[in-house]
Structures are given as C-alpha cells and as structure tokens.
Nucleic acid binder design. Structure first.
Lengths: 330, 330
DNA sequence: TCAAGGAGAGAAAACCTTTTCTCATGTCAT
DNA sequence: ATGACATGAGAAAAGGTTTTCTCTCCTTGA
C-alpha cells in the first residue's frame, strides 16, 4: 500500500494525494477529504524510510547506556519513550557493557540509521560512557551520566534530595541523625553527605562503605557496639543499605520507626516496599529525567536552541513507614 | 558524505563505487581497492534509510513488552541485542503498560519504520500482550509470553527447572522438601508445582500465596507453628519468597543451610546474592532466550523457514550457599 | 471583451543507494 | 582480418515520499 495506490484509488496524482494527506498545498476541500477517506479505507501508512530520506528526520533516537542491570536506565527509558511516543519518535536501546568497541559499533549503527539524536545514560553521575560522543553529526543529551563541557546534561539534584531526607527526619523530632552510605569516591555520595552535614550538623559520624545490605548491617553493628548515645535516625545512601540497616536494627530489637527512623535513597520500589517496615525513601525522579531528556533531544533535533550546561532535577520524598510521620504536607 | 562524494573522489561513477564497496559486479582489482580506500578515508557510511528503501530490509526489529519494571525483559533484551548487533540489526524498545491503545501506537510506529520483525515479550508465560500481532506483514516471535497457535514461541522449561532444584535437594540428602510458591493461577506456578510433586513425592504440602517476601515469611510461620516434623528443605517459587523464607528461618534460629536447605527461582542476581546466606537458585536463561528469539526473528526476516510451535529452553541451577553442597557436578 | 489573477491539480526533481542493462574496449581464435 | 567473447565501467531505473514548479481553466474587474 503506497501513496501511488491511494492516488490511483482516488483518481488523483501522487502529488495531490501527498498534499491532501499532509494538509499542505492548495486543493478543493472535497478532493482533500476524498483522498483522506480513501487512504483510511485502504489502510495506507506512509513509509517512514522514504519520508526520512527526504526530510532528514527519521523520527528515531538512540539511547546508549552501560547500565546493564537497568535499575537506573529503565525508568529513564520509560520516561523517554513516554515523552516521545506522542511525537512519533521511536527509541533504539543500545546496551554497551563498558565496552568501547561495542559502544562504537552501536553508535555507528545508529548514525547509519540516521537517528535524530542520541541520549547517553549510565548508572553513575561521575563516569563517562566509554565512547566519544563529542563530535557527532546529531545532538547528544546526557542523562544521569557525565557529559562534556558544552553539552546538555540532566541529572538529579542529590544535594536537594539529601536535604529533603534529613529535614524530614528533623521535622519528626530526630536530633541524632547518622549517615550510612556508599563508597566515598562516588560523586553522589559526597554530594549527599555534605548536604547531610549541612542540615544535620556534626552530631553523628558519616560511615562510608559499599552499596550492599551487608554494609548496612555491619555499620549498624559498629554504631550500636560502641559506647555512648545511639542515633535516633539513620539516613542511608541507598535503599539496599537501608534494608540492611532496618534488618540489623530489628535483630537488635531496636524498633523502627519508634526508636529509630530510617530513610533510604533511590526509592527502588521493589526493595523499599518489601522491607519491614516499608522504607521511606528519596526518589530521584528518573522517569521525569528521562522525559526531560527526550523532550530536550527532540528540541535539539528540530533545531531549537537549548541552553547547554548541567540541569539538576529535583528529588522527592516518598513516605512509607520507616520514619513514622505521614506525609510531607501534614 | 554520500556515495556520490566517494565516486567523485575516486574518479568513478556511483555505480562503480557502489559495486566496489559491496564486493559485487566486475571491475579491476585496483579500482575496487582504490574506491574502498577512499571511502574509508573520507569516512563514508551508507545511509541505511536509502538502502532499506530499496532492499526492503531495515535491519531493525522491535521489542514489545509490558514488563515495565524490566526484571524479565531486561535480560531478554540484552540477549536479543547481543545476538543481533553482529548482524547490524538495531532494536526498538517499546514499553506498553498493558495499554492496548499504546500498544497499537507502538506497533504502527514500528511498521511505519519498516521493522524486519517484532519480538513480543512479557512478564508472564500465560498472558497475551494487549495487542493483536497475528496478521502483521512482518514475522513475530513470542518470547516469555503467550503466542498464537501458528507462531514461534520461546519460553523457559519451568518443569525442568523445578526438577533440577528438587533433584539437587534430594541429592544433598533432603527428604522432607516443602514448596512455597506464588498464586496458583500462574501457569508457571502450576508447572513448577507439578514437577516438584513428581520428584519430591507427597511428603509436604504445597503452599500457594503471592510473589512477596512477606508471604515466604508467613508461610514459614504456618509450617513451623503447626505440630509434627519440619521440612529439611524448601523449594521456593521465586527468589523474593525464598528471601522471606530464609529471613523467617533465621529469626526462628533455624540454620540455613545446616538445618534446612532453601532453593529459589529466577536467579535474580541482586536479590539472591544479597540474601544471607546467598541463595542457590534456578536461572531461567533469559539472556539465552533473548538470543534465540533474536536469531529466530532474523531467520524469519530473511525468509528462512522456522518450525512453529513452543520451544522450551532449559533452566540451570546456580549454586550459592543456601543449600550446602558445592556444584551440580561434585 | 480582454487582461489579470487565483484556484485546482499534475509533472518532475530530489533524497541515497542498489541493480540491471548497455556500451566500449581489448583479446583471442579462426 | 574478422567474428566471438570477456572485461571493465557507466547510464538509468527503482524504491516511496515530499516539494517546487508549471499548466490550465475559471472568475473577476475594468
């Protein structure tokens, strides 16, 4: 079913058919309607390849990611897709396992297919993808991964997220707030930690470790085994650590949230909801981040100008039961 | 950079240039080499849109999934991508949230873009995607979701996986093997349960519940609170349940694996590895399943014939520490 | 009545590549 | 010397769509 068939069926030329369907050109209203009706009847759908060949727009973008497990990429992807599907844009998903060669292959394949733009995404804000995207013939947007000087980069505002968490704990009356978090060489760890310090003061130490339940467990052990006053709240670097913390506290018969409030980070639904009690956590708004990335790359593809630089998107607090309290607006 | 530029730079016609680059046609070896060299030098890459317009092959396939969280789809996706990238095929990821309208939009968009084939994937073997793929102009392969009578469907062999788990427990000397699993209306639950029955006999009851840690917890409670002999092994319907089971056993001071062996299902790395002790689990081989799906849809796209019907891919046992024992070959 | 202009519709070029066909040249055998 | 044939290379069409340009016919105003 090509536009030729539509034209033939409607008894007009292909030019007229094209103009009718695209609401361009001049022609009788009756002719336009007839062509449209017939196109609908025979189920005509324009060939995007042919259209793209001419218009230089393929209505296709590529998402490059090294987050194999997909915990971070998946919400981003969902946001991108959601934002772009209305504009008729489809998304190529390219998972490159920190492998520069594989990355290059995927980039080349996408360029061959004339993608209108590329979104680079990762699992860490302070790491670059192992492939150079700085001089591509198409616009590039970085989402949740480190970009270049002149690029558009979207990331979560981890400092604001951390503040949100600690202020929430303070508002619930907690005064001795500890922070158990991941490896200090992570940028987001440092950012969250310093925001924590600003709000919570220097009452409790910051414990750096690894992103694992076992570390949360262990850290609680070291705090509770030391002499002196215990924290009445723990702000955790992510939900896995928080889970370990909550479990360790329960094993020590410390009640959550009555004795100690716990806040996680990431709002990793499947983990946060299954913890007993369910975790109050900070959501980085990755889906919104994806949505913004999609709209941004689309804007660039259409030639609209976008201010380069890093744009931080706000986190939000998701209240469950590990802190007590009911909602941020109570 | 088009083939025109290559031809001009090499001082030949575009036909000759094309033939030189594709290793087709007749021409002097020197000419061919020169064209290739020059193409390399100016960085020529053929426009896949133009090529596809003529060849009717876009080297693009679509992956349709309703698994928003991506726990199952992600490995499948990785397998597909891995299998196809060598063939120059890129993958559109279309997440449809059980929304028929959204599904139709994505299918239409993919067809417009002339995908060579579609892979339908889901989070449940016994559910159909909310969109009719039965009479599309391109081949469709179903992976980890229910297909049609005449289609090619790939799925894991859950019965074999369950057998693997229970036989492993038996081999370790366990005789009272219980089964705590998900909702009975899941096909895979029934399949796993009946394979379990076959191997383990009628010693312990099957406990159906929901896919949650809390259910594993609760089920252990109901078993240990009832009078009589306790199981010495528990085969769980998935890793979440197994996690709940292991935690509940620890809280009751039942030692895992010394007193009770526990096996999970899904081999959900991030959960299985963080459980204390780490979970021995059944891996459904979703990546291999994805790889097979990719190769199959490619074969169909190239016109090769593929036997329709359901093809079951084997599961494998991943030994960690929740059972004791070291490896299936010891 | 005639010129001007507008409305409606079609012809053709363009996008980039592949492929088939044709043509020119040179070689070999008779 | 001539016909047959192989070799190398280019011309042109095809694929489906959009867009610009051109053409015809009709209306309107002077």
């Amino acid at each position: 079913m090509t536009i030729h068939d539509v034209a033939a069926a409607a008894g007009v030329s292909i030019s007229t058919a094209s103009k009718a369907l695209n609401n361009t050109g001049r022609m009788g209203a009756e002719t336009r309607e007839r062509v449209k009706r017939i196109a609908g009847e025979i189920g005509f759908r324009p060939n995007a390849l042919a259209r793209g060949l001419l218009s230089k727009r393929s209505f296709t973008i590529g998402l490059l990611t090294n987050d194999t497990y997909g915990r971070f990429t998946l919400p981003v992807m969902a946001g991108i897709s959601e934002a772009l599907v209305d504009h008729g844009v489809s998304v190529f998903l390219c998972a490159i396992e920190d492998d520069p060669a594989l990355g290059q292959i995927h980039v080349d394949a996408m360029l061959d297919k004339q993608v209108d733009g590329i979104i680079a995404s990762g699992k860490r804000l302070d790491r670059r993808l192992p492939v150079d995207l700085s001089s591509l013939p198409v616009p590039v947007v970085y989402a949740f991964t480190e970009g270049t000087e002149t690029s558009v980069t979207l990331r979560s505002d981890d400092a604001q997220g951390a503040r949100l968490a600690v202020e929430w704990l303070a508002k619930l009356g907690r005064r001795r707030i500890a922070h158990i978090t991941g490896p200090e060489d992570f940028f987001s760890v440092r950012e969250r930690a310093s925001a924590y310090r600003e709000v919570a003061g220097d009452v409790e130490p910051i414990l750096y470790g690894v992103w694992a339940e076992s570390w949360g467990h262990e850290a609680v052990g070291s705090i509770w085994d030391r002499p002196g006053e215990k924290p009445d709240a723990i702000f955790c670097g992510n939900d896995q650590i928080a889970r370990g913390v909550v479990d360790a506290l329960r094993e020590r018969d410390v009640r959550v949230p009555e004795d100690v409030s716990v806040v996680g980070f990431d709002n990793w639904e499947i983990l946060a909801a299954q913890t007993r009690p369910p975790l109050t956590s900070i959501d980085m708004g990755l889906k919104e981040l994806g949505r913004e990335a999609g709209l941004t790359v689309l804007a660039l593809a259409e030639g609209r100008r976008v201010e380069p630089g890093v744009r931080k998107l706000p986190c939000r607090l998701v209240v469950r039961q590990s802190c007590g309290g009911m909602s941020p607006t109570e």
